[in-house]
């Protein structure tokens, strides 16, 4: 396969990508096998991300593909099969990619992008825990709150492409998160809730038919997105529970206790502890009903 053919094929794969793990892996595998043509394939990936005709759902899926690709590239390079293809190129393009996946007018990819960026960050030496924590916090400033009071538009801050692209990517993401918090607060403050029953078509009718900007989702896209996100969520849970055990030991080992119990569990704070005890009391009700005689 020559470079041109490989690029066309990858472009075809990415344009029709669905977020099931098999498809993502297959696409990443294709890119890795042809990593000698990275000079052609990397621009292909970026072209698709930058293509204004691509729907947002697909862009989100492609970002998930980038997440998988980076992780696989690291994994196989550690086994000396490749020499870290795509990593540098994708990393320096991250700010640009994030801006495409999260356009100004639409935040529907926010959470997925966060999850992927968090996965990607694990592979690099830069400590991103500060940004991960911040993403969960209230990012609104005093100024924002007074703007919300005055029902004013959100004005994004211009980002300065300085420092490491990964850090810049996080900054853009946090800015988008702030925007989404701002817009939600503004909406809650200044519009009235509907009491009437809204029929389904009207509810989904966010995008006007004549709007060709691809920034808002149609009903079909929303439904397929729900399906896709379910798939992505399933994927994220698939390996959470994995416990690696020593092959040579025929019974449980100290290491399992250390990794999966001792270092994982911590003393609960007061409110969590209360909730924990409440759950146990709830359990007692089931237990008491199980015996014929009164035990306690």
């Amino acid at each position: 396969m020559d470079s041109f053919e490989a690029a066309t094929q990858l472009s075809q794969i990415l344009r029709n990508l669905t977020p099931s793990i098999q498809n993502l892996n297959r696409a990443a595998r294709f890119a890795l096998v042809n990593s000698d043509k990275e000079d052609y394939l990397l621009p292909t990936i970026l072209d698709i991300i930058n293509d204004s005709k691509m729907v947002l759902n697909t862009k989100s899926t492609i970002f998930q593909f980038i997440d998988v690709l980076i992780s696989e590239s690291f994994q196989y390079s550690l086994q000396n099969k490749y020499s870290y293809p795509y990593i540098q190129g994708l990393k320096s393009a991250l700010p640009e990619i994030i801006q495409q996946v999260l356009p100004q007018a639409n935040n529907s990819n926010l959470y997925n992008t966060y999850v992927c960026l968090r996965n990607i960050s694990k592979h690099f030496k830069i400590d991103c825990s500060e940004y991960i924590d911040k993403f969960q916090c209230n990012l609104l400033t005093e100024e924002d709150i007074s703007k919300i009071e005055g029902n004013k538009e959100f004005i994004p801050e211009k980002y300065e492409p300085s420092g490491d692209p990964l850090v810049t990517a996080w900054k853009i993401l946090l800015e988008k998160k702030r925007q989404s918090q701002f817009e939600r607060a503004r909406l809650l403050k200044h519009s009235n809730p509907l009491d009437e029953i809204v029929d389904e078509d009207e509810m989904f009718n966010i995008r006007v038919k004549s709007d060709k900007s691809n920034n808002l989702l149609s009903k079909r896209q929303i439904l397929s997105r729900m399906e896709d996100d379910r798939e992505a969520h399933k994927r994220s849970k698939e390996n959470l529970w994995v416990v690696n055990r020593d092959k040579n030991s025929s019974f449980i080992t100290e290491q399992e206790f250390l990794d999966n119990y001792w270092n994982k569990y911590h003393q609960l704070n007061k409110s969590d502890h209360e909730e924990f005890l409440n759950s146990l009391s709830g359990l007692n009700k089931l237990v008491a009903d199980s015996y014929k005689d009164k035990q306690f």
């Binding site: 119990y261 001792w262 994982k264 569990y265 911590h266 003393q267 609960l268 502890h273 909730e275 924990f276 759950s279 146990l280 709830g282 359990l283």
Partner: peptide
Amino acid sequence: SLSIKTSVDCLLVQFCKQLD
């Protein structure tokens, strides 16, 4: 169920941590 993992191994280690 119950918002906590109710298997003995998980509860046990949580209890040990609570008791220090």
